[in-house]
Design a binder for these strands. Structure first.
Lengths: 143, 143
DNA sequence: TATGCTTTTGACATTCATTTTCAGTTAGTT
DNA sequence: AACTAACTGAAAATGAATGTCAAAAGCATA
C-alpha cells in the first residue's frame, strides 16, 4: 500500500523529469503516516520534529506535487487553512463535517457519483474531480 | 424579488439591533445586481466605482452579515478568494467549475439532495448546509 | 431640533497562510 | 571529477482577511 504509493510518486517524478530527494522521501513518508485531512502546518510541524532542517516552503511545494501526482487532494474547509487528504486513484469519498467539534466523517456513495456523471454529460462537461461536503452537527454534538 | 430580499435583510437587522446605513443599502443593491459568485474584491471594485468612499473592511463586514441573514453564501473555490453567491432560503444549487476558463455552471438535482439526507440520517448527522463542486472542463474548453 | 448614547465606518496597521526570490546545495549525467 | 539543471531553505514579499480606533452617523429621547 505504502510502497505502491511511493511507486506512484516515483513514476510521476520520472515522467516529469523531477529528481528524487531526501526531503521528498521524508515528506511522503510522514504524509502517508498521518490520518486524513492534515493541514500544511500540522504536517510541517510533524516533519520538523524529526527533521528540523526541512523548510516551510518545501513542504508546500511538495504537497502540491503529491496533489499533481494524484496521491493527495486539496480540501478547503472554512478555517483558512489548506488541508490535504490521501487520494486513491479511482476511489473517492466525501465528507460530513461537524461544525460543532470539527470532526469529519467520510462516506462514499456510488449513486451520487453516477448522478454527477449524468449531470456533467448533460452539460458536455468533462469531470476531473469533485468534492461534496455536508456541514452540520454530528450525532454527539446534536445533544 | 429584490424588494423581498431587502425586507429579509431589514428584518434580520431589526432582530439583531443593527442599524440601517447608507453603506449597507448600497452594498446590498450592488450585491443583488451582480451575477453569481462575486469575490469580495470584485464586489469592492464595483462598489468603489459609484461610491468611492466605501472601504474594504465595510464590504467584508457587510457580506458576513448578508451571510448570517441567509441572503448570501460563502463559497471557496481554489483561487484563494472567498466568493459569495446569492442564497435563497430552501433552495440550493451546486456547481460545475471549469478549470479552463473559470466559468461556473449551476445545477440542481433533487435526487442527490435526497441521497445526502439519507446518508446524514444513517450517521445521525444533522445537515445545516452542503456544497457540491464538480471540477473539470466545460464543453467549450474541451476542444 | 438638540442631546446623548451606541453602532458603524474608513483608514491604517496587523496577522497569517502561501508564494516568490535567490544564493548555495545536491542529484544525476558524461 | 566535472558539469548542469533541479532543488532547497531562509528570508522577503504578497495578498486576503481581520483588528484597531478616532471620527461620523443612526436613533431614541427630551
Amino acid at each position: 500500500m505504502i510502497l505502491e504509493k511511493k511507486k506512484i510518486f516515483n513514476d510521476f517524478a520520472a515522467s516529469k523529469g523531477l529528481r528524487s530527494t531526501r526531503q521528498r522521501d521524508i515528506i511522503l513518508d510522514i504524509f502517508l503516516s498521518t490520518r486524513q485531512h492534515v493541514s500544511v502546518e500540522e504536517l510541517y510541524l510533524k516533519i520538523k520534529a524529526s527533521n528540523p532542517g526541512i523548510g516551510h516552503a518545501t513542504v508546500y511545494r511538495t504537497l502540491k506535487l503529491f496533489s499533481e501526482a494524484g496521491l493527495a487532494r486539496e480540501i478547503l474547509l472554512h478555517d483558512g487553512q489548506t488541508r490535504y487528504e490521501h487520494a486513491v486513484a479511482g476511489e473517492h469519498h466525501d465528507h460530513l463535517v461537524c461544525t460543532g467539534c470539527n470532526s469529519i466523517i467520510e462516506f462514499e456513495d456510488e449513486t451520487i457519483e453516477k448522478l454527477q456523471k449524468d449531470i456533467a454529460a448533460r452539460h458536455g462537461f468533462l469531470i476531473k474531480n469533485h468534492k461534496l461536503e455536508i456541514y452540520g452537527l454530528c450525532a454527539a454534538c446534536r445533544q
